[in-house]
Measured scan of single mutants.
Amino acid sequence: HNLTITQGKLFFHYNPKLCLSEIHKMEEVSGTKGRQERNDIALKTNGDQASCENELLKFSYIRTSFDKILLRWEPYWPPDFRDLLGFMLFYKEAPYQNVTEFDGQDACGSNSWTVVDIDPPLRSNDPKSQNHPGWLMRGLKPWTQYAIFVKTLVTFSDERRTYGAKSDIIYVQTDATNPSVPLDPISVSNSSSQIILKWKPPSDPNGNITHYLVFWERQAEDSELFELDYCLKGLKLPSRTWSPPFESEDSQKHNQSEYEDSAGECCSCPKTDSQILKELEESSFRKTFEDYLHNVVFVPRKTSSGTGAEDPRPSRKRRSLGDVGNVTVAVPTVAAFPNTSSTSVPTSPEEHRPFEKVVNKESLVISGLRHFTGYRIELQACNQDTPEERCSVAAYVSARTMPEAKADDIVGPVTHEIFENNVVHLMWQEPKEPNGLIVLYEVSYRRYGDEELHLCVSRKHFALERGCRLRGLSPGNYSVRIRATSLAGNGSWTEPTYFYVTDYLDVPSNIA
């Protein structure tokens, strides 16, 4: 807008934040220059609390790290170098490059900038070799853009010569660093050979998330399962459950009422301010606690030095998902009996873990797994792929695949051998790939016309006998059925096997 004052003059007093240069501009645009008398524009009460600059400061050096910015700028000295009290560095987070010096300023003089007072450097006698002032900004957020400017702080001049310097606002972004852990990993099994893994992005990506790394490792069953005799009275049979499938998407929606109208769909109840505040506090606490764990609990591995020492970490090797089922080394339970199943799973520490690289999504279907087997899954978020990966501390989750139908069934015939004193040795093959492992066998036998009897055969007993022995049988026709019990439950009964026990007292003698 054009402003013209045809008559009258300007009068400025007691404006401590208004620089004289701005008042002189007002004289020019209003056409009143030359009308004012000496005392109409006070030299001592206008701009006496402001830094009124008329020179431009330029930054000469900028260096960044993930949490620091090192700045240096060209030296500046007023005509009387004693008038320079120091520099004021202003900075704040700036997602967009549209910041002005006066953003967030209120009537009390406060604003949204963080201000650092910096002492002037030592003055050199040689004007050509003056030290460049600077400042190291610490405690910054990774991968965050900051708006920065600097200006001088000078003393009051009796001659009211307006001098000083100020830089333009520059924008500097800190470097990326390792992201925080992925949030809320959930693993479920939808079949006997697959596990579905879902997660949420890290709360602090500290860069642009480029991919996720998912490692999985087959877990050995508890050692007590191999040692305890679950045929003993009072000892509860062990059981394991597989990871249940995901709930429906509708039930997972946030901010939804727990109660549904019987007449149909209901609208979600909005969260109160107290609920939102509580969630923010919980989120802040979780982030602080995660940072504490990362800094205190997890110790970084030592990389190899120039002395030739090897990095103890196993090298990563990509495998196809079809090879995942046989990740671990199978060892027989008892070496003397080769027909026992290889369900003991000690994992070799030198073995390469299978892994998958996930790009542009937060889910993965891990296939080719062994049925009813526990897996430990390790999830890392990465925001750099080359020249070397920059990934987060791992988040861990466990899951067990679903049982395989008929995996616990005894394959092959049940054979028998009759000894003296009416002892019958029953023999059968253990299931080759049971659900988890076989903890015991149930032997059901009966003599024709009598009630059915049951015998429990422990895992250890089966390994020693290759089956079991029935003792003290009365003469007669017998039928026997056997079924295995694994961590997933009972298998199917075998087809009945028949044998006849004679009275050993009636056996004919070869003595003449």
Rank of each mutant, 00 (worst) to 15 (best):
T485M: 11
E495T: 07
A336D: 14
P245M: 15
S344T: 12
K406L: 08
P245T: 08
H294E: 11
Q380F: 15
I438W: 02
A336H: 15
P508V: 13
S367P: 11
G264M: 14
K271R: 13
L505S: 08
E217F: 05
N326H: 13
Y396M: 15
D323R: 15
S305V: 11
V443I: 08
F337R: 13
N490W: 14
F372L: 06
S223I: 05
K278L: 09
T303S: 07
S203R: 07
E351P: 10
W216V: 10
E420V: 03
S283E: 11
V327F: 12
D291C: 05
C391L: 02
P300I: 10
P434S: 08
H461T: 08
G472Q: 06
A336S: 13
V297T: 08
L470G: 01
N206Q: 15
L426F: 07
T494K: 04
L213S: 08
S341T: 05
V507L: 01
T333A: 13
K287M: 07
P403T: 10
D273L: 14
W242C: 02
D229L: 12
I438T: 13
D250G: 06
V331W: 03
A399Y: 09
I418T: 13
V439T: 13
R446A: 08
R286T: 15
T415A: 07
T347E: 14
C468K: 08
N477P: 07
I209Q: 13
V299R: 12
L235V: 11
Q219S: 08
V345L: 10
R286L: 07
V393W: 14
V359A: 14
T340G: 03
Q219V: 15
G306S: 07
E389A: 10
N295M: 15
E227D: 10
E247D: 06
R286D: 03
S283Q: 08
V334I: 05
V329A: 15
P205R: 07
P332G: 05
V411C: 02
R240L: 08
S509W: 14
G436R: 06
S315Q: 08
D385C: 05
S262K: 04
W216Y: 15
R218V: 04
L228K: 04
V324Y: 04
D222R: 14
S203N: 07
K460H: 08
G322S: 13
I410N: 02
D385M: 04
S305P: 10
E452N: 02
N477I: 05
N490V: 08
S479Q: 06
R471C: 12
N422C: 04
V397W: 14
E378W: 04
F372C: 09
L277M: 11
K287L: 07
Y259A: 05
G472C: 08
V358S: 08
A395E: 12
T343P: 11
K361Q: 09
S344Y: 10
R318D: 10
V345N: 05
V480Y: 04
V358K: 09
H461G: 08
N435Q: 01
I366N: 01
D311Q: 15
Y498P: 02
I276H: 10
P475Q: 12
R313L: 04
S239H: 04
S458W: 03
V334Q: 12
G489T: 09
S268G: 07
Q256I: 12
E247T: 05
A309P: 09
K361G: 11
N435L: 00
A309K: 15
G412I: 04
D261T: 07
Y478M: 01
S341M: 15
S248T: 10
H461I: 10
V345A: 07
E282V: 09
T386H: 05
L237R: 08
G234W: 11
T340I: 14
N295A: 07
D506F: 12
N295V: 15
Q384R: 15
H454E: 11
T347Y: 12
I276A: 04
D323T: 14
P434N: 08
K317M: 07
S479G: 05
N326A: 06
N326V: 15
P354H: 12
I438G: 01
S398T: 14
R353Y: 09
S251Q: 13
V324G: 11
K287D: 13
G374S: 07
G264V: 08
T485V: 05
V324F: 03
Y445S: 05
Y500I: 08
S398M: 05
R459V: 13
G368V: 09
G308A: 11
S392E: 01
D291G: 15
F215D: 06
V214K: 00
V439L: 09
L225M: 10
Y448V: 07
E430M: 02
R353T: 04
D323N: 07
T347A: 10
F337H: 07
D204T: 02
W242Q: 06
R400W: 06
L437W: 01
P244G: 11
L379G: 00
S444C: 03
E247S: 09
Q275V: 11
V457C: 10
R316F: 09
T502N: 10
R376K: 15
V501Y: 07
G374F: 07
L470V: 11
T333L: 07
R218P: 06
A335M: 14
S262A: 05
G207P: 05
N490K: 09
P338H: 12
E290R: 10
A463F: 09
F337W: 10
G476I: 00
G264I: 10
Y498Q: 12
F499P: 01
Y375I: 04
A335T: 13
Y498R: 08
L437K: 01
E310L: 09
V501T: 04
A512V: 14
T307G: 03
S367W: 09
R447I: 07
D385Y: 08
R301P: 05
W493F: 08
K287S: 06
T307Y: 15
A220N: 12
C456M: 02
V365S: 08
P387L: 14
S509L: 12
L470N: 01
S251N: 13
T210Q: 14
A394R: 13
